[in-house]
Design a protein around this nucleic acid. Structure first.
Length: 336
DNA sequence: TAGTCGTGGCG
DNA sequence: TCGCCAAGACT
């Protein structure tokens, strides 16, 4: 039996299951569109556990409880609030959205799906999420959870990240979204993907919509395009400390992690005879980076985008996680 | 369209 | 240890 043959029964089964098992995430305890938007941006490509356990959502919404408060905040401050979450472009766009709300919408959050979709950093998914969660507006949404569920219940073997696949998923989502309780329905769908219809080992015996699922091979769905292979690269950086200050480099606006500070890079031939202080690895997109840190033997002069910073003030600077970890270790060694 | 953007969890 | 992937959007 297809879900599209009995949309109301399908919706009700999901909603009933959800109301029985729902988690009380903080963004489910509000209908403030701004707070819901913040949660949606944070959760893009980021697990709930990461956002909650490290206090990102609570800290950020306490600091920026309204679009107005974020709109006027300095860049380094918002990057610091986002430090550790990654995809730093998200918080830059969130600030642009806040500014657009202040300037174009006179400070009040837009209420229509079309207007929400116009805001910077907000695509189809996030517009649907904000409209349905904040306003209980009957808008469809497709995220990784929904894509996985629909691919399975319709036994869909096309690649879901192709334009054809995406179109099909959004068609099903629009067809099936609850007209009466879209807030609970959309939440339920995503929660089901997170708790039951999981990527690795779906728990089909516990699934409230099992009767509408037509696949025999859920673990093989959804199908996706092949991933780019991981490329190994090396990064060689200098640790220069002088008079209680440290030399740092700030990524410019066109660069990866723009606005963030890290240790300055130098060509290997200038570093290879210096003492090696640290060797570590980290992943970024499809790269695996081996990071080497060398001890400077003399006081270097700052190059483009480089500056000396008081070591006691490092906490207030936005620094990407791999460098934050290395700095914590090295500076602790240096002063203990 | 395909490439790019961070980080951490998990099998 | 390694690869996959997660409440995507932009260029």
């Amino acid at each position: 039996m297809l879900a599209t043959d009995h949309p109301e029964a399908f919706q009700q089964a999901l909603i009933t299951w959800f109301q029985k098992t729902a988690k009380d995430y903080p963004w489910r305890q509000t209908s403030d569109p701004w707070l819901i938007l913040v949660s949606e941006i944070m959760l893009q490509q980021t697990q709930v556990k990461t956002v909650l356990d490290k206090g990102f959502y609570t800290n950020f919404t306490t600091k920026y409880p309204t679009p107005q408060s974020l709109a006027i905040a300095p860049e380094e401050e918002i990057l610091s609030a986002w430090e550790g979450l990654g995809y730093y472009r998200r918080v830059r766009n969130l600030q642009k959205a806040a500014q657009a709300i202040c300037e174009i919408h006179s400070g009040s959050f837009p209420t229509s799906h079309a207007d929400i979709l116009q805001l910077p950093g907000i695509g189809q998914y996030t517009a649907g999420a904000v409209a349905s969660f904040a306003y209980n507006d009957s808008q469809a949404l497709v995220d990784a959870n929904v894509a996985r569920i629909f691919a399975r219940i319709f036994d869909y073997h096309q690649k879901v990240d192709s334009s054809k696949g995406s179109k099909q998923l959004w068609h099903w989502a629009s067809e099936l979204v609850s007209p009466s309780n879209p807030r609970a329905y959309n939440s339920a769908l995503m929660e089901l993907g997170q708790q039951i219809c999981t990527n690795k080992s779906p728990q089909c015996t516990k699934c409230p919509i099992q009767q509408w699922c037509t696949t025999n091979t859920p673990e093989q769905l959804p199908k996706k395009k092949e991933r780019k292979k991981t490329v190994q690269i090396e990064e060689h950086c200098l640790l220069a400390v002088h008079a209680n200050e440290i030399l740092l480099h700030q990524a410019d606006s066109s660069a990866r992690r723009s606005g963030m500070w890290k240790l300055p890079e130098r060509p290997l031939h200038l570093l290879e005879n210096l003492p090696l202080l640290s060797k570590s690895t980290y992943a970024i997109t499809h790269h695996k980076v081996t990071l080497y840190i060398y001890q400077a033997s003399q006081v270097p002069s700052p190059q483009k985008n480089e500056a000396w910073h008081d070591i006691q003030q490092l906490e207030a600077l936005p620094i990407p996680s791999p460098f934050r970890k290395v700095l914590n270790t090295l500076l602790e060694d240096l002063f203990c």
